[in-house]
Amino acid sequence: MQKLLQDMVETYGNQVYRLALRYTGNMHQAQDITQETFLRAYKHLDRFDRSKPAGPWLFKIAGNLCRNWLRDNREVPVEMADNLAQSTNPGPEEIYLEKEGEKELMQALNNMPLIYREVLLLRHVGELSYTEIGYTLSLELSQVKNRLYRGRIMLKEMLRKGE
């Protein structure tokens, strides 16, 4: 069981963390969500179909946790770049997140309806296929395609308005 979990962490740990980072904009929260994701996965390993890749299953758990986090922190604006700028000794990761345009990107993302945001993040951060996104979000393939397209348009529009 632990070997399977270790494999999952090695293969998908960073992707789950990056997804949580995009949702929360906070490294500590993202680490907590990632840890909770793998704790829940470990607890429910018996429900996991080992003949399939673990990614979509893990992203499903992580997505639920992120949605819960968003619901509980609705009033707190997520400003990744601002939060990280307060850090006195930024690490390499923080320096990366302070890259040009990051703040605008996070703001645009956070202003998007969740149904488009989650599809975009699963595709671009989780690197899931359309079919895997469909499984993760319980959507038809046509819904995945349409939401992804509309989400991409929305993101570009919001970034353009923010310029």
Partner: peptide, 19 residues
Amino acid sequence: TSDGLRIDADLPPEFYENL
């Protein structure tokens, strides 16, 4: 444009141990 959402951030090395 959407590819800009990618992040290179990695989990800290002690993550698995803490888990």
